[in-house]
Write a protein that binds this DNA or RNA. Structure first.
Length: 644
RNA sequence: GCCGAUGUAGCUCAGUUGGUCAGAGCUACUGAUUUGUAAUCAGUAGGUCGGGGGUUCGAAUCCCUCCAUCGGCUCCA
């Protein structure tokens, strides 16, 4: 007998070799029906796999991430089986579950697949699913595995096998399809009921650009058709918050092929929103001891040779601008830090001056690959809310802590609370990718982790994600479709001070090297605003809204009163527009609602006589009659905190 | 950059197998209407069907190429 411990700490005895399915069946019929896999001592098992030792277990269903992963992993195998049936001779790469669904990478050889073929493949999958084939697990020796895939002619599986040790290799077979796979899987294919292939994409084998590009097919499956329909509806709903769509509808920004791809044009409303965010942060930074600087958009090649950017990115960036007479090379600036280093160097510094916090809303230009551009989140010209803190080594942690406070202040003010804090460290396997000494890297990485801990941030450590010049703490936020983007960032840099030979005079009258911290709470205004739009669905907080109120006259007869109010609001620093069109009030309200104007002031005969306004709030409806002062009070209450 | 898809008026979209297929709604403009909480009615204007090349008696429709956009991959200072 073995002892099985459940999540509620209940312990029960079972015969040795009991399976997850037997345990589930023993608990309830419903559980047996819904269970997908079982967690056994931190490892997910198939339900048919015998458990031989005492273990802590957790039965996994659709409500568990691991349960869904098991389900989608099995779905990926089903996709592969269908593909092999329809396209004989294709070779298989990997086919894992992902956050929403799964994919399989295949090498189609001479054959091609496009999304037009999806219905056919889905049909085949459904047919195979109905057959209810078991997913059979089998231990195989490395020799047998190599022999099997050599015979089958699957070079990708052979490539995978190279890295596996004999004795740890398992095959899973369902129907006619056998795959190299560590599992686990659901018991059989019949649980897969609703199937939808989503898209097709190229994906390099092992994520290496130099390897062959395979065809990746993405899909998602559910146990019920209704769940699939709901999922697809949710995705459609999320698309309505897409900043590219709202940006156009709300007239915030646009792009022009003539200006160039990835170069956003800010329209008046977007520009105002942007300016407001800028002044909000400038005010906070002034309080926090930052000093403003301004630097030009280009810099001499020598600047970037010194900074190391030339060596690292020179060939992949926008090509240099040559002066017509001297033939000197200038580059569009990809970062502000080299310029700021030169500002630091413009005069000697005492330890008493530090930290020096140079802040600039600096516009930078980077040549991003064309396929990588994306709305306002990935562009070729953007403005960073940049600052560089030059401090003594003993001040690094304190400065880092203060910056975290500033980032959190900004996020709170804008109601962004679903971020993840990511600590990006260098890849110890690939140190050549980075510049700077081992000692400095270790010091910097330690400082970041400690500061994040002290601020109580829940961090996610990503090895190999560091910038080439230093480790960083990034604040990541998801867009409407669940893609993660880096917004705020704080980066420790021991490298640039070295390269620029920055120094200060210490209390010992000796020269010392300062440490630099790069930081940007928004990251870039473009990306931040994109995420902000998606976050609030275009319903900006009142203090940011390009238009805070609109005055709607019942008829043209009241246009004089409409204009009186407009003047009054202007004098009270409220951004209000007017709608004097010859339209019915219902129409004016509808248009204002669509434009997401926070407040609508409706005025007709009653209001003109009593010197009042009828207030309607966007998305809420009629709030009733207000005096003008009453309305001002209402609006100020919501905005005061941030008005500069 | 790579894989796949898309590109028709300012916007959202129709245009069957190449032959009155250059259309609709909204927007804009003009006129009527003077309106009480999510679309008043009528009229007018607006497009070398992303650009270029080709096949054809004839191309929005088929082919090639370039550009841009979308979904991924790679990259990301």
């Amino acid at each position: 007998m073995i002892q099985i411990t459940f999540p509620d700490k209940r312990v029960q005895e079972y015969p040795k070799g009991v399976t997850g399915m037997q345990i589930a069946s023993g608990i309830s019929e419903g559980l047996a029906r819904n269970v997908l896999s079982i967690m056994v001592n931190e490892q997910v098992f198939d339900l048919q796999r015998p458990i031989h030792q005492n273990a802590e277990v957790r039965l996994l269903t659709w409500n568990d991430d691991e349960g869904r992963s098991t389900y989608w992993h099995s779905s990926a195998h089903l996709l592969a089986e269908a593909l092999e049936a329809l396209y004989p001779g294709i070779q298989f790469g990997i086919g894992p579950p992902i956050e929403n669904g799964f994919y399989y990478d295949v090498d189609l050889g001479d054959q091609t697949i496009s999304s037009d073929d999806f219905p056919k493949i889905e049909e085949k999958m459904k047919e195979l699913a109905k057959a209810g084939s078991e997913y059979k697990r089998e231990d195989v020796s490395k020799n047998d595995a190599v022999e099997y895939f050599t015979k089958k002619g699957d070079k990708y599986k052979l490539d995978l096998l190279k890295d596996l040790e004999d004795g740890t290799i398992t095959f899973y077979t369902q129907g006619n399809f056998t795959d190299l796979c560590r599992g686990p899987h659901i018991p059989d294919t019949s649980k897969i009921k609703a199937i939808k292939l989503l898209n097709i994409a190229g994906a390099y084998w092992r994520g290496d650009e130099k390897s062959k590009q395979l065809t990746r097919i993405y899909g998602i499956t559910f146990q019920k058709q209704k769940e699939l329909t709901e999922y697809l509806e949710r995705v459609e709903e999320a698309k309505k918050r897409d900043h590219r769509k709202l940006g156009k509808e709300l007239e915030l920004f646009t792009f022009s092929e003539k200006v160039g791809q990835g170069l956003p044009l800010w329209l008046p409303k977007g520009a105002q929103l942007r300016e407001r965010l800028e002044s909000f942060l400038k005010k906070a930074q002034l309080k926090a001891g930052y000093v403003p600087v301004v630097t030009p958009h280009i810099g001499h090649k020598d600047l970037y040779v010194t900074s190391g950017h030339y060596e690292k990115y020179g060939a992949d960036s926008f090509q240099p601008i040559h002066t017509p007479v001297e033939g000197e090379e200038f580059f569009l600036k990809p970062m502000n830090c080299p310029h700021h280093c030169e500002i630091y160097k413009s005069r000697p510094h005492s330890y008493r001056d530090l930290p020096l916090r140079l802040a600039e809303f600096g516009t930078v230009y980077r040549y991003e690959q064309s396929g990588e551009l994306h709305g306002l989140t990935r562009v070729r010209g953007f403005t960073q809310d940049d600052a560089h803190l030059f401090c003594r080594p003993d001040q690094v942690k304190e400065e880092f802590l203060k910056v975290i406070d500033l980032v959190l202040y900004v996020f709170n003010a804008l109601d962004i609370n679903d971020y993840t804090a990511q600590v990006s460290l260098r890849d110890p396997e690939n140190k050549a990718k980075y510049i700077g000494s081992d000692e400095n890297w270790e010091k910097a990485e330690r400082a970041i982790i400690e500061a994040a801990d002290e601020k109580g941030l829940t961090t996610k450590v990503e090895t190999g994600e560091a910038a080439f010049y230093g480790p960083k703490l990034d604040f990541m936020v998801r867009d409407a479709l669940g893609r993660k983007w880096q917004l705020g960032t704080i980066q420790v840099d021991y490298n640039l001070p070295e390269r620029f030979e920055l120094e200060y005079t210490g209390s010992d009258n000796q020269k010392h090297r300062p440490v630099m911290i790069h930081r940007a709470p928004f990251g870039s205004l473009e990306r931040f605003i994109a995420l902000l739009i998606e976050h609030c669905g275009g319903n900006f907080p009142l203090w940011l809204a390009p238009e805070q109120a609109i005055i709607l006259g019942i008829s043209e007869k009241y246009n004089d009163y409409v204009e009186n109010i407009s003047e009054f609001l202007k004098n009270s620093d409220i951004r209000a527009s007017i709608d004097e069109r010859d339209e019915k009030i219902g129409r004016k309200i509808r248009d204002a609602e669509v434009r997401k104007v926070p407040f609508m002031l409706i005025v007709g005969e009653k209001e003109a006589e009593n010197k009042t306004v009828s207030v309607r709030k966007h998305g809420h409806g009629d709030l009733g009659s207000f005096s003008l002062d009453g309305f001002i009070e209402l609006i100020k209450k919501e905005t005061n905190q941030f008005i500069s």
